[in-house]
Design a protein around this nucleic acid. Structure first.
Lengths: 338, 338
DNA sequence: CTGTTAGCGCATTCAT
DNA sequence: ATGAATGCGCTAACAG
């Protein structure tokens, strides 16, 4: 097999003494071409190691067949799985995926959007941490599809794929109540984000439905990491009476709390039940495995891609916008009572 | 700010009644242009919300400013961190990153290479699972840089960034010997891959250096997951005398083994010491935290990007190829004796 | 069935 | 300091 560094449809055309149009037709399986010529072209292309230049095609067609995905970070199981889902679905439809990370920084998020727009992506899938939607609107103005997953903003004409965070908060809380807890502490996460507001709302609603009074002192504002969980647990330990359960909007904070509580000789779940959120792998690996709420990130990623593909393949000009909401699932393990 | 769906340098030129060449010069900060005109163009571009079309630039220049990264999977802490490192370094130099997953399937790996080549990436960074290098050679023939990280193949003219797996295997084994172990079992991982061969070689060498005879019965062929670790531990338990330590080439297999051993009422590290490999987050989260070997994935990713950037910015035609080998670090926790 | 040509958006020669 | 023209590789409209 002879492979030259460069070979285009022009090279094939030269080789065969035919025109580039014919080569293009053969390569693209068009009808108006003789089987003989087609065969000839295909063979030559194979022999020369021809590969279509996607860039030229993209420039010509205005479609890059590339989607940009913006996430807070890629090195967590949750977002990693979402990306896997997106990739699997999109690759099967000949799309490439560009991944960008924001580390939760709105400035980086804007920079990422610029990069992706420059790269002429056909769509931006985003799990946003922004307060302001103006940067997001620029995407739409460019005629590029925008789809939210997990962390969304309320915007018209934008599809989203999220989980029912309210329900997740509700059922976790309800389970704690069902198993005898009455003084349930709550670790909040970043309350600027819709997802955490919803989880808190679910928690409150479950309390209210069970005639338990909402107690501001039981709400701990935490970021979603181990250290913050420990800190919150330290404060919590000073409360009198002590809460009999913790519902943490993050697995990491739940883990920190568990470590702190055990360091203070409290038994879990006997003294306090603990539930986390996200079903990170470590929650099931622990000897004291942690009850949590599964968000089906793989499914979320797949669904996000599907929603886009549906819109894209929609023959009419009228684009349909969808708000897909997945149902979370409570996973009961050893950190809660039966 | 008025943002039209489409605006190119032609639109700016029209608006200002000047030529596209002048617009291009202004936008690219060229010298041969009057400050007045330049100012004018820049303002108009700003006002019109102009963004450079990377595709056109790439087609013109032959450089897409995009790098493709191929990994077995993105949803593991190890590869997630590598990708983060690559991203951070490359984004700072205005490169985009396309991520592809192989799930360890060579066919997918080849398909991914095709996709990336079609996309005209400037380089392919790969952690390969392939036996055959012919698909990899196609990358080079296209004039596209190829760089290995973590899982490499021996190929001429290809840079690589790996860790010293031999050393990792050696020091883990040496530590077990230092703390009194003599019958050290080994969980192998996929011995078709260089990294696992090297770890095993390090293990053997440490034994030999300490006058301990290599015992084939202590070698367990495992894949790198929890179940395989459990299975191997089950077999191991039938050995007489029982090994007094396990060195697992994978944290996941180590975890499985620990679970199985404890289910059989063995104490760790008193009855058996256990060391894993990779420093996955869960190893430190466990109550019985697991000793392991850190591979510095973030650093590995950054370094891979740096090696590429150095090559790329090298003004001469003579490309320098580098084999960077990072030193791993033994992390001692509760699963081993002091 | 096949060939010629224009144009996607840009940077860059060559003129002026 | 500025403009006109060219080509990167491809597809599609048009012509034959």
């Amino acid at each position: 097999m002879v492979t030259n560094k460069k070979n285009t449809i022009y090279d094939i055309a030269d080789q065969l003494n035919i025109s580039v149009a014919t080569v293009s037709r053969a390569l693209n399986n068009k009808t108006n071409i003789s089987p003989t010529t087609k065969e000839l072209v295909l063979k030559a292309a194979e022999k020369m190691g021809y590969e279509q230049n996607k860039l030229a095609l993209a420039l010509k067609s205005g479609k890059s067949k590339t989607v940009g995905v913006i996430v807070p970070r890629v090195d967590s199981s949750f977002f990693g799985s979402i990306i896997t889902g997106i990739e699997e679905e999109l690759n099967a439809h000949n799309y490439s995926v560009i991944i960008c990370q924001t580390h939760g920084d709105p400035k980086k998020e804007i920079a990422n959007i610029d990069t992706l727009l420059n790269s002429q992506v056909d769509a931006v899938f985003i799990s946003t941490s922004m307060k302001d939607v103006s940067a997001l609107e620029r995407v739409l103005k460019k005629g590029v599809s925008l789809i939210f997953f997990d962390r969304k903003k309320t915007m018209e004409n934008v599809s989203s794929v999220t989980i029912n965070d309210f329900q997740g908060g509700y059922s976790a809380t309800q389970h704690l109540i069902n198993t005898g807890s009455k003084r349930i502490a709550y670790f909040s996460g970043d309350l600027d984000l819709e997802i955490f507001q919803e989880r808190l709302a679910g928690y409150k609603h479950a309390l209210s439905d069970n005639g338990i009074e909402y107690n501001e002192n039981y709400i701990f504002r935490t970021e979603s990491n181990i250290d913050e969980g420990k800190k919150a647990a330290k404060k919590l330990l000073k409360l009198n009476p002590l809460p009999d359960a913790i519902f943490s909007s993050s697995d990491f904070a739940a883990l920190g709390a568990i470590q702190e509580l055990r360091a203070n000789n409290l038994n879990i779940p006997e003294d306090l039940s603990v539930i986390g959120f996200a079903n990170e792998p470590f929650t099931q690996f622990m000897e004291l495995s942690i009850s949590t709420v599964d968000q089906f990130p793989l499914k979320m990623g797949r669904m996000t891609a599907k929603v886009f593909l549906e819109q894209e393949e929609n023959p009419t000009n009228m684009v349909i916008h969808k708000k897909v909401v997945l149902e979370p699932e409570l996973i009961l393990r050893k950190s809660t009572k039966k």
